[in-house]
Design a protein around this nucleic acid. Structure first.
Lengths: 199, 199, 199, 199
DNA sequence: TGCTAATCGAGACGGTACGTCTAGTCTTTTT
DNA sequence: AAAAAGACTAGACGTACCGTCTCGATTAGCA
């Protein structure tokens, strides 16, 4: 039959075809951006990628797995290092909000969180991912400890958790356009407390 | 529980039958508890409630609306008043975690958040609900202001948001069993800050 | 063809919609005629009938059931009564061959036989149908008995079976264009035997 | 059963590996016997034979070709020679029914007939095969002619066709357990006719 | 008191997506 | 050159729900 315009990808032997994998990941992202989580189905991805459903199921056992890989593929948030913790955290949140707003990452991560509420595999993956991010973001705090900016007994993972929680809730309730002043205030509360600002 | 005897509910004239409404809400909750969000479908609820699907759609235009009503029906978290803000906030979180753990509310709210990621109506409802809760929980903070415990320029809604964010992320990543010490530390960070604890 | 304008068929209440049933049977026949048994799939029938797959499965549990109903719907072969058995049998075979050739019945019955080789339900239905036809066709022979044309101890069902076998094999091996002389000879062999034709 | 030891067959150079061919034919037969035509797929045969699908497609261009070779491999029906045509034909049918009943041949041939209803190649092969068998079986009749038992103008191919038709229909409707008396009667009808048994 | 209108359970309707299976083709690697 | 292996696109399988529709029964309130 040999469709002229769009020669379908063929097998490249008894091993995974990276073209297919790439096309599938790209299609998944595109579907997610264009139709949202509601329109995100394996069928839609397969159609978009001109791939067979079994090819998707072969490499990603669940929607969650596909979502996770799409997310990790597009994630590249700079962790700023301004020399001050407060500025670092504000920068981190600002960068994250912007990244979620301006790339597909926001859609993808929202979908992942949603999927995790009904799929155990996704739940595990998300919990695992969140744990990893906690220590990753915690390093911002650790740097401040090393500088002597904050006491050494501060629980950096917990701080990262608090900051991430704030970001998550904004993502999940469509408030990624939060203004900088508010973000700054939130970070200030965590930094200096709301009671008796002793300075 | 409280399922009718065999004789199905009939119309009671040209108005809503409260028995049906009740049976549907109970069925929705039961389905959610037993099968989770993954198994939560209008069909399943209709089956369980011995109701026709159109009866459900007549009164709740979407899954989200039904979820929301189920949630609000079961929500009854005590807002403690111990006389100290820190203790109040710790108590609030402890109560909330326990309520989510031990009633169906946790499942229901998780489902609601998930649904909000793909359904615009649910998203609006959730945003609206979150806004309402922010000012509600903010009253704990307002009380502390009135007592002079914290400065009057503290943004109580933002504090409530931070606290709620922490709770949401725990719910959504299956960490409702967080130990009290950690909760207490998180509240302490918000109360007194992580930098230079000046007391 | 003759499909309605866009307005799709709707439910007519909690009972079978005869329009849908009719459209499905017609579509099944059309698909069978146009694409043969190889192209006969429930999906194809559903597409052609503008019907949902579940609607088909609701009323016809298997491909076999659908085939059987399509066949019985189109079956109308005249059983001739010329006053002579030999002429009757020749006429029966000629009519049957023509009917199979010129309507969709041939395709349908071939498909049914094929389906019966892999589907137990179809096998039962086919065996049952064949049994029924045997006694039906046997009545041609019974009439001859009643006329005193053949001895009363002739097994009419067996004669019908022999004649039908001859027809089946021709259908299944694409020999429906058998010329009349051969058909006539075959019937003559059964009528008067091949050994020592005593007349 | 009859599966190779674990070490897979390897290529034996630039020519067909007879071990593979044999394993494939055996596997095809085994699959057919165990799962019937419904479960007979190239994939299943390849799995069973520990062969690659392309190896099968290389040597048998279609399911039909494979079926045909499996059938011809297992076919060995004695054509009796008792000195009397009637006895010969009865013996032929009895042997054939028994062979179909007690070996895999019945399943295989049924599958072949079924396949021929959707696959043109199979249809041609089957028609061709049937033609060949007709003249082969016709030799029983020719012998009787040579003995002067029947007139020389009897159409032996047509007689063979009638007899074979009777066998086919029994096979295809699961009536291989037909009792001998009935078989004998059917042959008698063909031999001596049903009208005016002149002896 | 009889009519109208809205509601109820019920379930069929056209659809979409699920996750699995097979078809038939392709390439690489090994012999 | 042929075999094994297994990936590839394509599409059918039979099932679960979606949200809409129409039914027939039921009952309250209006006429």
């Amino acid at each position: 039959m040999a469709e002229d315009a769009d020669p379908a990808r063929k097998s490249i032997g008894a091993r995974r075809n990276p073209d297919s994998a790439g096309a599938i990941l790209e299609a998944a992202e595109a579907v997610l951006v264009e139709a949202g989580y509601a329109g995100f189905s394996i069928e839609a991805v397969a159609r978009r990628a001109r791939a067979g459903k079994p090819t998707i199921y072969r490499w990603w056992p669940s929607k969650a797995a596909l979502l996770l890989e799409v997310y990790q593929r597009g994630k590249r948030v700079d962790v700023p290092d301004t020399g001050g913790l407060e500025e670092d955290l504000v920068g981190f949140l600002k960068n994250l909000f912007q990244h979620w707003r301006e790339t597909s990452s926001g859609s993808v991560f929202r979908s992942l969180v949603a999927e995790a509420q009904s799929d155990d595999a996704a739940a595990l993956a998300l919990a695992d991912y969140a744990l990893g991010r906690r220590s990753h973001t915690g390093q911002i705090v650790e740097r401040a400890k090393a500088r002597g900016e904050i006491p050494p007994d501060v629980d950096s993972a917990l701080v990262a958790d608090l900051i991430a929680s704030y970001a998550w809730k904004h993502l999940l309730t469509n408030r990624l356009d939060e203004d900088e002043a508010t973000i700054r205030k939130a970070v200030a509360y965590v930094m200096r407390g709301i009671a008796a600002p002793c300075r």
